[in-house]
Simulated assay, not measured.
Amino acid sequence: MTAFEGDFYGFHAELTDREAESVAEIRQFFETEVRPIATDYWNRAEFPHQLVPGIAALGLFGPEWEETRRFASSAVYQGWCTLEMARVDASVCGFTAVQSGLAMGSIGVGGSAAQRAEWLPRMASGEVIGAFGLTEPLSGSDTARGLQTSATRQGDTWVLNGAKRWIGNGTIADVVIVWARDTADGQVKGFIVPTTTPGFSATKIEGKLSFRLIQNADIVLDEVVVADELRLPNIRSFSDTATVLRLTRAGVGWLAVGNAIGAYEAALAYTRERRQFGAPIGGHQLVQDLLVKCLANITASLAMCVQVSRMLDAGIQRDEHSALAKAFVSSRARETVAWAREAMGGNGIVLDYGVAKPFADAEAIYSFEGTREMNTLIVGRAITGVAAFV
Rank of each mutant, 00 (worst) to 15 (best):
S301T: 14
M311T: 12
L286W: 07
G278Y: 08
K293F: 00
D313S: 09
K326S: 13
R275E: 14
A279E: 08
R332I: 00
P280E: 13
A267H: 10
D313W: 12
T299H: 04
D289G: 00
G262I: 14
R318T: 10
P280S: 09
I298T: 12
I298S: 00
Y264W: 14
L302F: 11
Q307R: 10
N297I: 00
H321F: 08
R275T: 09
A314Q: 14
H321R: 11
Q307M: 15
A296Y: 12
R275M: 15
G282D: 09
C305K: 05
D289A: 03
Q276E: 15
R332N: 03
Q288L: 06
A323N: 02
Y264M: 03
Q285A: 06
V306Q: 06
T299V: 11
A267N: 11
R272W: 02
G315I: 09
A296G: 06
L324M: 07
E273S: 02
E273A: 04
F277R: 00
L268T: 15
V287Q: 06
K293G: 04
H284A: 03
L286T: 14
D289W: 02
R275H: 12
A325T: 14
Q285P: 00
I261F: 10
A296W: 11
F277P: 01
M311I: 09
F328K: 12
I298L: 05
L295K: 13
A269K: 10
D289I: 04
P280Y: 09
A263P: 08
L324C: 01
A325I: 08
R272C: 06
E273Q: 11
